[in-house]
Design a protein around this nucleic acid. Structure first.
Lengths: 184, 184
DNA sequence: GTCTATATTCCGATAGAC
DNA sequence: GTCTATCGGAATATAGAC
């Protein structure tokens, strides 16, 4: 049974990634949990505290994700990563990094720092996976590993955003093309 | 000398692409132009009217962009397109499509429709350029033209967003890798 | 930990004068 | 086309009782 505090973080995350950070209020969360505005403020005094908790949750989540994949081969690791974004897209959300990037200039530095840590965690992880996969001849690409990682991550970030707009199979097309190119 | 109406659209665009649609108010614009809140409402009765005008401006702008490039070779057209995003990134903004994608669910359908038209305008244009460039053996890629266009566009969209966060040469790395891959 | 109550500020929007 | 004035509402946030 998750605590109220955890439920608030989950709901905030959903709101941020569905509607944007500046488009949700404490009332939205209070109504869903059937508690009052002030009760949310008890757990997170300011809205930015809540934003930071959301990003912190993502960081912990990604660390678990890494750990679960540690023993798998690199192609499977990349495929699992791409499937993760597939599920984001299917749920109507976007990546947290993209959501916060849009509202970047209306966030305090403490929250920006957290987003930066999260972003670099993802980039560093994928860079290492790609590098190891190339060495084992499981993956093929020409650019430096970090650049290739950035290319794939930007594909996924923006494809979830674009899919919201074009409403077609664009996400799946991009995802499949990425895998195909890595395994030629 | 631009009209007040045009100045309002320009300022709104800047605010939207720097801080997000839900993070700016009529007061922000009124203060900059040294007019009153109500004067902005005279030109754009509701905030969504202003959002639609901003997107409409982007559509017209892109039509001009296409026209200016019509006679150039396809490699130059793609390079100019990528350089356009480079200047977006340097100015601290993000692509309008990405900004609106984040706030997608808090926009009325009339504004969503405009964003959709703009997005597909870009996708269709790049698809055609890539296809023509491949036929003339100026460009090389394996995926279907529309998929390749989506890959490049998502690279650019999200790279401008990520550059805001990582604060490094990531954007240039991605941009150069895209060109290199197309000209192998 | 949750409540009531409230302070404060801001926002989008409208009416009507000039 | 811009102004003053103002409405109604919502948002963030706090004080203090339970």
């Amino acid at each position: 049974m998750p605590s109220t505090k955890d439920k608030i973080v989950q709901l905030a995350d959903e709101h941020i990634r569905k509607n944007g950070y500046n488009a949700f209020s404490y009332s939205d969360i209070a109504k869903t949990l059937k508690i009052k505005n002030a009760a949310v403020h008890y757990h997170f005094p300011a809205k930015t505290d809540l934003a930071e908790a959301v990003i912190h949750w993502h960081i912990e989540n990604f660390e678990n994700f890494k750990e679960r994949l540690r023993e798998k081969d690199e192609l499977l690791q990349v495929k699992t990563f791409l499937n993760f974004y597939n599920s984001i897209q299917l749920s109507g959300k976007i990546c947290a990094v993209g959501a916060f990037a849009t509202d970047w200039n209306s966030m305090p530095q403490s929250a920006q720092d957290q987003v930066r840590i999260f972003s670099e965690l993802i980039i560093d992880w994928l860079t290492e996976v790609l590098e190891a996969g190339k060495e084992k001849k499981l993956l093929t690409f020409d650019a430096p590993p970090r650049t290739e990682a950035l290319k794939i991550i930007t594909n996924m970030f923006a494809a979830t955003q674009l899919a919201r707009i074009t409403n077609s199979d664009d996400f799946a097309d991009v995802k499949n093309a990425v895998i195909e190119e890595l395994t030629i």
